[in-house]
Amino acid sequence: MVDKYLLPHRGEIIKVTQETGSNLNIKTFRIRLLDEEVRKKFKFLPGQFVELTVFGLGEAPFGFASSPTEEDYFDISIKETGLVTEAIHNMREGDQIGVRGPYGNNFPFEEVKGKNLVFLAGGIGLAPLRSLINYVLDDKNRDQYGRVQMLLAFRSPEDMLYKYDFSSWENSPNTMVKYTIDEECEGWVHCVGYPHELLNEELDLNQPDTVYFTCGPPIMIRFITEELKNSGIHPADIITTLEMKMSCGLGKCGRCNIGRYYVCKDGPVFDLKQLEQMPAEF
């Protein structure tokens, strides 16, 4: 039996969560594969992505937003931007959706065992990191990692994602979570400003054996990585994900490559050392 890489499996939306206000309009969809056999075989890792199909309309790539430790389903957070995302946004619990994947490489969650971790997220860039954060902070895994620090950046309080996770993250052992928004606003008690400006004062960047994970808008990633490098962090310890126009997911169709790398297969997770050796096309 050959796997059908180009046609989707059928999944059912079992939960829809409105994450943000109408400003950005991000929703999180919990999806469960219908076929039991398929569901058992479907193993994903933090950092990987799926192609979701709206039947008859088309497909688009999305990173996993839940931890693989939650086995029966997975979460995908989607911002409404185009035809496919709009159609998914109109879906409700019980609706069916096509699922191809999982595709791509993953965050090096095995390799960083025993190390301290720093998560730097901007907006919906928190989605792929949430998969790793929830994996690391899972009771079964927590003692395998060192100290965890997070700086989560959002445009405004209204644009925050996964608010329902925050208390469990904050209450995890040896874990510190900081939040920031772009501009001061009433009732806000956390940091204000762009994350790269806050790195040094809000986080402890001097601890050894630390790996930095950052996801967010390209401009944010650029400033953050520059700031980290200036603080003496080695590029190989700065890890991010790239967003290109992934389509086939198999490293063949040709639209997501950066130099010799197909982001859909060799990525989307890269460390800064790799990125610095790639043609500047992202």
Partner: peptide, 20 residues
């Protein structure tokens, strides 16, 4: 290099691959 397109046939939806 290739892309996909979809075509409806009554209730069925065919997925096609096309050169790009």
């Amino acid at each position: 290099c290739f892309g996909f397109f979809w075509e409806k046939r009554e209730e069925e939806i065919d997925k096609w691959r096309t050169w790009d």
